[in-house]
Each structure stands twice: as C-alpha cells, then as structure tokens.
Computed example of a mutant assay.
Amino acid sequence: MTELALAVPAAPAALAPRRRFRLMRRLVGHRSFQIGLVLLVLLTFAAILAPLTGIDPSSMKVRLRFRPPSQAFPFGTDGFGRDVLTRVLYGARVSLWIGFVVALLSGVIGALIGVLAAQFRSLDALLMRIMDGLMSFPAILLALGITAALGPRMESVIIALTVAYLPAGARLVRASALVVRELDYVLAARIAGASPLRIMLRHILPNSVSPLLVHMTFVFAYSILAEAALSFLGVGVQPPTASWGNIIAEGRDYATEAWWVMLFPGLAISLAALGLNLLGDGLRDVLDPRLKGPG
C-alpha cells in the first residue's frame, strides 16, 4: 500500500507551478482582463478614498439643492443639497461590498454543494432538486421576495442575492467535478485508499473551480445591478445610507430638471458592470482550454 501510495499521481494543479505561472502571464497580458482590472481597481480606490472629500454624505444643505455640476460640486447636488459626488463615492463602498460578498458566498457555498453532489451520489438528487427549485424562479424575483420577507436592509440584500445566484454556481461545479472524479489521478488516489473527504478536498475541488472563478466575476456584476434594482424599488439598502441604487431612486422624480442626480450613479454602475464583465471574459479565455483569447 505504501508503494502504491507513492506512485499515485497528484492532481495537475499541485504539480504544475510553471503552468500556473504561464496562466498568470497570459492573464496579465490579456487586453480585456487588463481593462477590466483597471476599471475595478479605480472604482475600488475611489470607494476607499471617499472620506478624503471631507464631506458628510448625509449632510443636508437645502439652500444648495439641485445645483448643477460645477467646480464646487463636480457632480452637482440632490434635492436635499447633498453633494452627489460624495454620495456616489460612499455608495461605491456599499454597492461594491455587497457585490463582492455575494460573489464570494455564492461561490464558496456553491462549490461545496457542487462537489458534495458529485462525490456522494446519495446527496446528488436531494441537493440538485433543491437547486432546481431555486432556479425555477427568476433571480431578481427570488431576491425581491426574500428581501421583502426579511426586511429592507443590507444584510437581507446579501442573503437574498446569495440564495438567488447560488444554484448556478453549484451546478457548474458539480458538472466539472463529475468529470474530474473520473480522471486517472483521482482513480489512483481512490485505489491507494485515500478517504472520500481527502479526495474531494485535495483532488476534485481544486481542479473543479476554474469555471466557478469566471462565474463569480459575472455574479459580482449581476449583484451590483440587482442591488441597484432592489434599492431602486425600496427593498434594498435604505437611506440615509448611500448606495448607487437608492441615489438613482431619489433622483427619479427630478429626472428632467436635475438629470445629474441619476446620471452619475448610473455611470458608476455601468463602469463596474463593464469592468467585471471584461475581467470575466479575460479569465474565461485564459482558463478555458477550448478557447484562445486575444491576449
């Protein structure tokens, strides 16, 4: 048994540092990945540096209400005299944080569910039927129902969007894991007496998550859009906390007279979604061996 264990080939990911280096080099040289990363980094730094404006995003100065963009107020002011630039920067903190947490939670939980379903056939039917049940509802409607039940606050939005986007990630990992579990190094590890848990965590899971990484970048973008939609409808992040969605909601009644209130948070949402989609395209081109990216 000892000799057999020594002969067991390890997973490719564990024996290919050069391959990982080549993947990183291709990522860094991929044009879509570069542009997406730059946009995401700029938005992240803008959110981090928001306090440098020196303005309280909730500070109201009614005498300054609906001032158009100017040198004093680059993004103008809203109906309460609040600086729109400051609120967009602070809103980036909330919207980006919600998107990141939802992508991370749905990815981690989805990976565990997917690999459990692939490794233990007795759990497969149960877990996948639950995922199918969740996927039978449009994601935004499912999130809307959950936030309405839990109450309009940030934690409810995170829970609702995680549940809404969890099934797609779980099914994606399950599909990859079903292929990986039949590969030679996994079969050799099973013959050598490795426990199912060790096989799952050491061999199957690390080699099944590449498609999930790509999927998580798109979930990040979808979550930002969905949070904006929920906040716009009044069941997401509540004022006075600024998020891109509720800033747009506050300006919808003045769309013609004070167009800047809706324009700038809308542009921020568009840039975030564009950056994350370009980032995901770059990851997909590099990580999917069936594709040859332009980079």
Rank of each mutant, 00 (worst) to 15 (best):
T2C: 09
L15A: 06
L15T: 14
A16I: 04
R19I: 02
R22S: 07
R22Y: 14
L23S: 13
M24A: 09
R26Y: 03
V28M: 15
Q34H: 11
G36M: 01
L37V: 05
L39V: 04
F45S: 13
A46P: 10
I48L: 04
L49S: 10
L49I: 07
T53P: 05
I55G: 11
P57H: 01
K61C: 03
K61D: 14
V62R: 02
F66Q: 14
S70C: 10
F73H: 07
P74L: 00
F75K: 11
F75H: 05
D78V: 15
D83I: 01
L85K: 11
L85E: 04
R93A: 12
V94F: 06
S95G: 03
L96N: 05
V108C: 10
V108I: 06
I109Y: 14
G110D: 12
G110N: 10
A111V: 08
A111M: 08
L112R: 08
L112V: 05
I113V: 09
L116P: 14
A118Q: 12
A118W: 04
Q119L: 02
Q119D: 05
L123K: 13
A125L: 09
M128K: 11
M128V: 01
R129A: 00
G133Q: 07
I140C: 00
L141I: 15
A143V: 15
A143D: 11
L144V: 07
G145I: 01
I146S: 14
T147H: 13
A149N: 05
G151Y: 13
P152S: 05
I158H: 04
A160G: 05
L161A: 08
A164E: 03
Y165C: 07
A168L: 12
A168K: 08
A170S: 00
A170F: 10
A170H: 03
R171W: 13
V173P: 01
R174D: 07
A177M: 04
V180R: 04
L183N: 12
L187N: 09
A188E: 14
I191A: 13
L197Q: 06
L197C: 04
L197T: 14
I199K: 04
I199C: 04
I199W: 08
L201T: 03
H203L: 05
L205Q: 09
L205M: 07
V209K: 11
S210L: 09
P211A: 02
P211H: 00
L212M: 13
L213S: 01
H215M: 15
H215K: 02
F218G: 10
E227D: 07
A229C: 11
T241Q: 04
T241F: 00
G245I: 03
N246P: 13
I247F: 03
I247S: 04
E250V: 12
R252Y: 15
A255Q: 13
V261F: 15
M262R: 09
F264A: 02
P265E: 11
A268P: 07
S270E: 12
A272T: 10
A272S: 09
A273P: 14
L274E: 06
L274M: 10
G275D: 10
N277C: 02
N277H: 03
L278H: 02
L278A: 14
G280P: 09
D281M: 01
D281E: 06
L287K: 03
P289W: 00
P289K: 00
R290F: 02
L291G: 08
G293R: 08
P294E: 03
